[in-house]
Deep mutational scan, measured.
Amino acid sequence: TQVHVDGVTYTFSNPEEAKKFADEMAKRKGGTWEIKDGHIHVE
Results as ranks from 00 to 15, higher is better:
residue 1 T to V: 13
residue 1 T to M: 14
residue 1 T to Q: 06
residue 1 T to H: 08
residue 1 T to W: 13
residue 2 Q to M: 14
residue 2 Q to Y: 14
residue 2 Q to N: 12
residue 2 Q to S: 10
residue 3 V to G: 00
residue 4 H to C: 06
residue 4 H to S: 07
residue 4 H to Q: 05
residue 4 H to F: 11
residue 4 H to M: 07
residue 4 H to T: 09
residue 5 V to F: 08
residue 5 V to A: 07
residue 5 V to P: 00
residue 5 V to Q: 01
residue 6 D to L: 04
residue 6 D to S: 08
residue 6 D to Q: 06
residue 6 D to E: 09
residue 6 D to F: 06
residue 7 G to S: 08
residue 7 G to L: 05
residue 7 G to F: 06
residue 7 G to W: 05
residue 7 G to K: 07
residue 8 V to D: 11
residue 8 V to A: 11
residue 8 V to T: 11
residue 8 V to W: 11
residue 8 V to C: 11
residue 8 V to Q: 12
residue 9 T to F: 10
residue 9 T to D: 05
residue 9 T to A: 10
residue 9 T to R: 08
residue 10 Y to E: 01
residue 10 Y to L: 04
residue 10 Y to N: 01
residue 10 Y to D: 00
residue 11 T to K: 09
residue 11 T to E: 11
residue 11 T to G: 07
residue 11 T to Y: 14
residue 11 T to F: 14
residue 11 T to C: 11
residue 11 T to V: 13
residue 12 F to A: 00
residue 12 F to W: 03
residue 13 S to R: 09
residue 13 S to H: 11
residue 13 S to I: 11
residue 13 S to G: 11
residue 14 N to R: 07
residue 14 N to M: 08
residue 14 N to C: 13
residue 14 N to G: 08
residue 14 N to I: 08
residue 15 P to A: 12
residue 15 P to W: 15
residue 15 P to M: 15
residue 16 E to Q: 09
residue 16 E to L: 09
residue 16 E to Y: 09
residue 16 E to C: 08
residue 17 E to D: 13
residue 17 E to V: 10
residue 17 E to H: 10
residue 18 A to Q: 00
residue 18 A to H: 00
residue 18 A to D: 00
residue 19 K to D: 03
residue 19 K to L: 14
residue 19 K to C: 10
residue 19 K to H: 10
residue 19 K to E: 13
residue 19 K to A: 12
residue 19 K to R: 12
residue 20 K to A: 14
residue 21 F to L: 02
residue 21 F to W: 08
residue 21 F to I: 01
residue 21 F to A: 03
residue 21 F to K: 01
residue 22 A to C: 03
residue 22 A to Q: 01
residue 23 D to M: 10
residue 23 D to Y: 07
residue 23 D to G: 07
residue 23 D to P: 00
residue 23 D to L: 06
residue 24 E to D: 11
residue 24 E to K: 08
residue 24 E to W: 12
residue 24 E to I: 08
residue 24 E to C: 12
residue 25 M to S: 08
residue 25 M to Y: 09
residue 25 M to N: 06
residue 25 M to P: 00
residue 25 M to V: 14
residue 26 A to C: 06
residue 27 K to E: 14
residue 27 K to Y: 13
residue 27 K to S: 11
residue 27 K to T: 12
residue 28 R to T: 14
residue 28 R to Y: 14
residue 28 R to H: 14
residue 28 R to V: 15
residue 29 K to D: 13
residue 29 K to E: 13
residue 29 K to A: 14
residue 30 G to C: 09
residue 30 G to A: 04
residue 30 G to F: 04
residue 30 G to N: 10
residue 31 G to H: 03
residue 31 G to T: 09
residue 31 G to N: 03
residue 32 T to D: 05
residue 32 T to Q: 08
residue 32 T to L: 07
residue 32 T to E: 06
residue 33 W to G: 03
residue 33 W to Y: 07
residue 33 W to K: 02
residue 33 W to I: 11
residue 33 W to S: 04
residue 33 W to E: 03
residue 33 W to A: 05
residue 34 E to Q: 13
residue 34 E to M: 12
residue 34 E to G: 07
residue 35 I to K: 04
residue 36 K to H: 10
residue 36 K to S: 06
residue 37 D to I: 02
residue 37 D to V: 03
residue 37 D to C: 08
residue 37 D to N: 10
residue 38 G to V: 03
residue 38 G to Y: 03
residue 38 G to K: 04
residue 38 G to H: 05
residue 39 H to C: 09
residue 39 H to A: 12
residue 39 H to E: 11
residue 40 I to R: 00
residue 40 I to W: 04
residue 40 I to P: 02
residue 40 I to M: 04
residue 41 H to I: 13
residue 42 V to P: 02
residue 42 V to R: 01
residue 42 V to N: 02
residue 42 V to I: 12
residue 43 E to K: 14
